[in-house]
């Protein structure tokens, strides 16, 4: 009997230990983010890498998602003569859910992987040790700027993604589904509430924090050689993606449950 339950117990204990370790690491990162010394140049570099360079992938994801959403809602709404809800549902769906979640996942794929690979390579080539010998705390110089940059940049990416997603819906609505352009825009604006947008941006900040946190955490724990860095990169992307989806549910419960 023990032989059956032992592997399950080991897996559960391992998962709990990993969550605990990540939570302690997150607390440490938060402490380093708010205590000096600060590295503004490293922060600017990370903002450029994580924010600006992620714009194309987030924009492309958003425009196709908004366009597909408009088609789906039109087809679904037609079953009970509710085609007119397309603009409002596209807008609400994008800003509340799809913008932050898909934006977060695309950033996870792009940023968690690159951060884990970069920091992992720095670890295996002793660059992290070199930083320490040069009186520089890697948590402050490498980790805090990246996590702060992602926490600031992803909400902006989400805002841009939301707009582009709504544009995608608009283009399909007006070009393919014969909506009047002015009416489409009016319905989009009238039915969208401030909290819809703000909640999506808050989700974006949380997802950005998690993405960079996972990239740094697994990069810092990278094993030796190319295989170690590869494994760290894979773990960072998987963990960031799962954490985004899990935290999305929790945040949705927090923001919108009755």
């Amino acid at each position: 009997m023990i032989a059956v339950f032992a592997p399950i117990g080991r897996t559960v204990l391992g998962a709990l230990a990993a969550i605990g370790s990540l939570a302690i690491y997150a607390a440490s990162v938060l402490r380093h983010m708010i205590t000096p010394p600060f590295y503004p140049r490293a922060l600017l570099g990370a903002l450029y890498q994580i924010g600006w360079l992620s714009l194309p992938v987030v924009g492309l994801t958003a425009i196709f998602t908004g366009a597909a959403l408009a088609l789906q809602i039109y087809a679904g709404g037609a079953r009970f003569s509710a085609e007119a809800v397309v603009p409002s549902i596209v807008a609400i769906g994008m800003v509340r859910e799809l913008g932050p979640v898909l934006g977060g996942l695309m950033v996870a794929a792009r940023v968690a992987s690159s951060v884990a690979a970069e920091i992992g390579t720095m670890k295996v080539t002793e660059q992290i040790d070199a930083l320490v010998t040069l009186s520089t705390d890697p948590m402050k110089y490498l980790v805090a700027p990246r996590v702060l940059a992602a926490t600031l940049a992803v909400p902006l990416l989400v805002a841009v993604g939301d707009s582009i997603g709504i544009l995608g819906g608009y283009l399909v609505g007006v070009g393919r589904l014969d909506f009047n352009g002015a009416v489409y825009l009016k319905n989009t604006v009238d039915f969208l509430q401030q909290w819809d947008v703000v909640s999506g941006l808050l989700k974006g900040a949380a997802f950005g924090f998690l993405v960079a946190l996972c990239g740094c955490y697994f990069g810092m724990r990278s094993g030796r050689g190319a295989q170690g860095v590869g494994a760290a990169t894979k773990q960072a992307v998987v963990a960031a993606s799962v954490l985004i989806l899990a935290s999305n549910y929790l945040l949705t419960e927090l923001f919108f449950s009755a």
């Binding site: 720095m122 080539t125 002793e126 660059q127 040790d129 070199a130 010998t133 009186s135």
Partner: peptide, 22 residues
């Protein structure tokens, strides 16, 4: 070395692979 606060300011190290920041 790391437990002595002033040590690192008077310390240098050449790493095996150089460990230069790319």
């Amino acid at each position: 070395g790391l437990q002595n606060p002033d040590f690192l300011t008077h310390f240098g190290m050449l790493f095996q692979g150089g460990a230069l920041f790319d």
